[in-house]
Design a protein around this nucleic acid. Structure first.
Lengths: 195, 195
DNA sequence: CTTTTGTTTAACAATTTTGTTAAACTCAAA
DNA sequence: TTTGAGTTTAACAAAATTGTTAAACAAAAG
């Protein structure tokens, strides 16, 4: 027995995630991943057998990471407003670390048209939609299709982070200035959502 | 004299754009582009010399297309609210056709870190920001950093289109149902922006 | 009709990227 | 210390992608 487990397998995977999700290098080759991880490229094949398998694993874990961020909110039993406030903080902090994760998911979905339908998360969404509807009926949120409410919320959170390079160029801002803008957004989004 | 101009050069470029911007095939090879255009791959090299040059051209035209969509709004002299209403329709219709154009721009920006700073569009933006500030001072829009207003606006418009596959999976909707949701959004965004 | 110029193609070459093999290495356990 | 399983490496092979060349083709100009 033993499996020395030097952490190399995890290192490679984490490095790949960093390149894909944090740096937005969606085209990264196995060589680039190995270099960034400071290991020999052969290890990528040793641990993952093929590039595709590594991609699949990263893709799956990206979906799971994204989903579990949402579940944390969907399943919580806080009052609605607190739940949303919590989501905004968690989601923005997470997306600041991994701004390109959603892009990676979408890009990969468009490559192999196959396994688009993973664990559907349909039940949790349905419950959350009903909860939103209830809040609207109580007059706490402006009346609209609850799906639109969800899209508004995630749009306001995610888009400025996904498109950060574009906006920084447009506004002529550096990283720190932009980060400050994002921090201020947390409260702004809350107010926008609840009018 | 002559240049027979069979339109093949334009066909290749348009096909590339369609693959990149409409289908989200951000990794498409020259062979895939040629196949989709129904021409021999050698033509890609004949007309564009190299893959990179084709990419650069497409990238530049993507930026220009995106910018000119905005300029149409920035430079217009309509009343503010009408200007925004117009933008929402133009931008959503455009982004519905080319949902992945912004993703392509960002992805390419992250590849060759070089030419990030193109024509800066700084002047137009500054004018638009001032205009927003004026509207806020008049009480027509809730007070906030004008940059946040712009980001809110574009977030609400673009994000649900960029992430359409994700949301369709999440909500269990087909293309038509989702398109209907997007159409309804136009008015909703207008109301959300102007509280 | 012939020439000219631009277009298209097939065959080939070079490069890049990926996958495989066998041998060297490392550390824990016997 | 020797064994042995897992780890790492270099060298090699295969595949995929890109780039080049020369020749065939098509249409307008002379």
């Amino acid at each position: 027995m033993s499996t020395r487990d030097t952490g190399t397998e995890q290192l490679i995977k984490d490095t790949a995630k960093h390149l894909f999700f944090a740096e937005g290098k969606l085209h990264a080759t196995t060589q680039e991943i190995a270099d960034a991880a400071g290991v020999n490229r052969t290890l990528v094949n040793y641990y993952f057998r093929s590039r595709d398998i590594l991609f699949d694993q990263v893709f799956t874990e990206a979906q799971e990471g994204f989903s579990s961020t949402l579940d944390e909110v969907f399943r919580s039993s806080m009052p609605f407003k607190e739940k949303i406030r919590n989501l905004i903080h968690v989601f923005i902090d997470e997306t600041t670390k991994y701004p390109y994760r959603q892009l990676f998911i979408i890009t990969e979905m468009n490559r192999h048209v196959v396994f688009t339908a993973k664990k559907s998360r349909a039940k949790e969404v349905k419950i959350f939609l009903a909860e939103i509807q209830a809040e609207m009926d109580q007059g706490n949120v402006r009346q609209m299709e609850p799906k639109q409410f969800i899209m508004n919320l995630f749009a306001l959170m995610a888009y400025p982070l996904i498109t950060a390079p574009l906006h920084q160029a447009l506004f002529g801002m550096n990283d720190d200035e932009y980060a400050k803008l994002m921090e201020e957004r947390k409260e702004l989004i809350f107010e926008t959502i609840f009018r």
